[in-house]
């Protein structure tokens, strides 16, 4: 898209794109531990995130828009996390849910736990809690949607090209 690189998109068009993108997010299931049960509860009938637009749950990273890392990341699992993140196509976002993936959590002194998933992949939204309430996760998703709506397409694409793969 050479046009976007050089001239940038005018505001109305980019806001339409961003609005469409933020309301049809597909998320990649990456439930590791207890927080995964909370993600299942968020997708249940009581707290429903399908009304925010996250309808199908693709099991494959190639079709996903963002990834919720829910649960403890251990050193044995860390290469898989990085590999799955790399398989997702751009533009992609990461929500780190729960204190285990924010910074190691209650296992901060363990010999086999990665102290936070942001040591491996860049994170956009941190949701604290152990486990966070479903309403807290919904707020995290809404914050992510706000962030997407405020994005500038030109910077996002240029950033991709200069980033090493």
């Amino acid at each position: 898209m050479g046009v976007v690189d050089k001239f940038g998109l005018p505001k109305p068009i980019s806001s339409v794109f961003n609005w469409a993108r933020s309301y049809s997010l597909w998320y990649f299931q990456f439930g590791l531990a207890c927080c995964a049960i909370e993600v299942m509860a968020v997708s249940g009938p009581r707290h429903d995130f399908m009304r925010l637009g996250i309808i199908p749950l693709p099991a494959s990273p190639r079709q996903a828009d963002f990834m919720i890392v829910a649960g403890t990341v251990t050193d044995k699992m860390a290469p898989s996390v990085k590999r799955l993140y790399d398989q997702m196509p751009e533009p992609k976002y990461v929500i780190s849910m729960g204190s285990c993936s924010n910074s190691g959590g209650p296992y901060w002194d363990s010999y086999s736990v990665t102290k936070g998933v942001d040591q491996l992949i860049p994170v956009d939204v941190y949701v604290p809690g152990c486990p966070p309430r479903p309403e807290a996760l919904q707020e995290g998703i809404i914050l992510l949607q706000k962030k997407i709506r405020g994005e500038d397409m030109k910077e996002k694409w240029l950033e991709v090209q200069t980033e090493p793969i």
Partner: peptide, 23 residues
């Protein structure tokens, strides 16, 4: 196995009894 090994038995040795309850 081992993708969720967090080392409970070792962590229990450095914590006191009420702290282990939370863990």
């Amino acid at each position: 196995l081992g993708y969720m090994h967090r080392g409970y038995e070792k962590l229990a040795e450095v914590r006191s009894y009420p702290q282990i309850t939370t863990l």
